[in-house]
Design a protein around this nucleic acid. Structure first.
Lengths: 181, 181
DNA sequence: CTGAATTTTCTGTTTATACTGAAACTTCAG
DNA sequence: CTGAAGTTTCAGTATAAACAGAAAATTCAG
């Protein structure tokens, strides 16, 4: 399969972005390709199109499936796996966030919680303890907020976002002041 | 300078987290150390404490200063630079987001904008064009939302967040439905 | 069962990045 | 000016991650 210059540039840029955010370049490229593709692709297709080894594609696809970003599908009379990803950007975003929260934020919360406890138990300098605790609180609040927001239907979420700072105008002054503390 | 076991673990974990998000491990460790430190440290202190080469610390500090996360300060009668970072986690977070938006999101928006234009000009398959455009729109909306929210005083922001999904209860039904489209 | 098609796993190799140590440079006290 | 203190730059080295290619494993038609 051959790519238009535009598609190629999209994929390369996406790979570049991936590596800046800790995602393997090939993994990001494979995902970008699937995002652009009109129909599900075989691993072979992907390897050819991106000029990477078949085995590299296999690993990348496995990783993308682990992230629940890519699904394998099948076609009648064809033993090969066909891979596809959602074309709904909003959903892709939520999936990625969800996964990173589970894999990175939650374990970090656990570690920080333990460190705060240790720090108190061992009577380390209060300033140190309070800094670790502050980090823990911050992540904890972000996490709690995320857990609530993630439950909203995407449409509501999207609506809230397009309101922007508009939401603040419904905050009663007193409430606003109280919560802002 | 010697670290408590707890502090060491905090710093190591932070370094690990950094590398998962595309931040050099040493850079993240240096920042974590400064975050925990009671007073500004010299590059020499940092190198000793973390057991890394003095030059590596120099590079890391320069990078952290570029991110506006670390400042150099001075003390009377001492020619050395002393480095410190804010202890306000919320502010640190906003700084990091701000920088990543400027360095990664905005350039990506520019690229995607151009690709959408090219894709239209060259009459590429409409499905392809619309997928690139969808990605561009999404990032654009996120960016616009961020730009608005980032202008709020931190206290208001924090207040909004601790409300969680509570904000939705002020959304008039009609408005909610309309915006949700 | 057999063997072709396909996928996965594994072992080296390559590559990109991080890192060190030394040298170069800068700053400033005397 | 001079040289000690401090910092940055740079060239080479080390390390970890990514990758390719081959081998192994799996699946399934016949």
């Amino acid at each position: 399969m051959t790519l238009s210059k535009t598609a190629r540039e999209f994929i390369l840029h996406w790979g570049e972005m991936g590596s800046r955010w800790g995602v393997n370049r090939t993994v990001a490229q494979v995902h970008a390709l699937l995002y652009l593709a009109a129909e599900p692709l075989t691993a072979e297709d992907i390897a050819e199109t991106l000029s990477v080894a078949r085995s590299n594609v296999s690993t990348s696809l496995r990783e993308l499936q682990g992230w629940e970003l890519v699904q394998a599908t099948h076609q009648m009379g064809d033993r090969r796996d066909f891979f596809s990803t959602s074309h709904d950007v909003w959903q892709l975003f939520l999936t990625v966030v969800q996964q990173r929260v589970e894999r990175e934020i939650e374990p970090t919360l656990a570690v920080l919680g333990r460190l705060v406890a240790e720090s108190r138990a061992e009577k380390l300098p209060p300033a140190l303890t309070s800094r670790i605790a502050a980090m823990h609180n911050f992540l904890n609040e972000m996490h709690a907020w995320y857990m609530q927001v993630a439950k909203l239907p995407p449409a509501t979420l999207h609506g809230l976002m397009s309101l922007g700072v508009g939401v603040t105008k419904w905050l009663p002054r007193s409430r606003k002041a109280k919560e802002a503390k």
